[in-house]
C-alpha cells in the first residue's frame, strides 16, 4: 500500500492538462483557486450548502468544495473561465441582459449550475416538480419556471436575484433546439 500523503494526478481544466503532486486532502475548489489561480469559482460555505463553487466535471455539475482532487485522476473540469473559448457564453449574456445579479458572488456557480441543469433537462431527467415523473417527457425548451427553480435550488443567492436568474435561464432554454447550449 502506498502510504504517501500525496499522489500524482492528471487533470484537465478548461482544456489544459495539468499533471502535479496533489495532497490527498486538497479539494477541487482549492486546486482551482489556490494553485491554478482560477478564482472565478467561489468559496461560499465550503460545506456543500450554497452552490457557489459549482463547476462541470466530465460534463456534469458538481460541487468543487466536496470533491477531493485525488479522486479525479483523468477527469476533465470546466469552470466559469472555460465555458466559452470565444468569449462570453450565451447564458452569461442572458445574465447580463436580465440583470440577474447584484453582488455577483454566487454568479459563476449559478451559471455553471444552470448549464449543467439544462443539460440534464436535455437528457430528459425529471425533477421533483415534474408532473407524472414516471412517464413525463422532459424538454428543455418547454421547461416551466417552477422546474427551473427546483432544479436550481442548490444555488443560493443572498442578494435575492432569483427571479432574474430564472428569467435568464428561461431565455436560453426557450431557444434550445436540442443543440448544445
Amino acid at each position: 500500500m502506498n502510504t504517501d500523503t500525496r499522489s500524482m494526478v492528471r487533470i484537465t481544466v478548461n482544456g489544459k492538462v495539468h499533471e502535479q503532486q496533489i495532497d490527498h486532502r486538497s479539494t477541487l475548489l482549492d486546486l482551482l483557486r489556490e494553485t491554478l489561480r482560477l478564482t472565478g469559482t467561489k468559496k461560499g460555505c465550503d460545506h456543500g450548502q450554497c452552490g457557489a463553487c459549482t463547476v462541470l466535471v466530465d460534463g456534469q455539475r458538481v460541487l468543487s468544495c466536496l470533491k477531493l482532487v485525488v479522486t479525479l485522476d483523468d477527469a476533465s473540469v470546466v469552470t466559469i473561465e472555460g465555458l466559452d473559448t470565444d468569449g462570453v457564453h450565451p447564458l452569461q449574456e442572458a445574465f447580463v441582459a436580465r440583470d440577474a445579479l447584484q453582488c455577483g458572488y454566487c454568479t459563476p456557480g449559478q451559471v455553471c449550475s444552470a448549464i449543467g441543469a439544462m443539460d440534464e433537462a436535455r437528457r430528459g431527467w425529471p425533477s421533483l416538480v415534474t408532473p407524472d415523473l414516471a412517464n413525463a417527457e422532459v424538454e428543455l425548451s418547454t421547461l416551466s419556471r417552477e422546474e427551473i427553480r427546483e432544479r436550481m435550488s442548490g444555488n443560493l443567492c443572498r442578494c435575492g436575484a432569483y427571479p432574474s436568474i430564472v428569467d435568464a435561464i428561461e431565455d436560453v432554454a426557450r431557444q434550445d433546439a436540442n443543440g448544445t447550449v
Partner: peptide
Amino acid sequence: LAGASGQIRN
C-alpha cells in the same frame, strides 16, 4: 429527487 441538490445528486 426530493433530497439534496442537482450538484450533490450527480
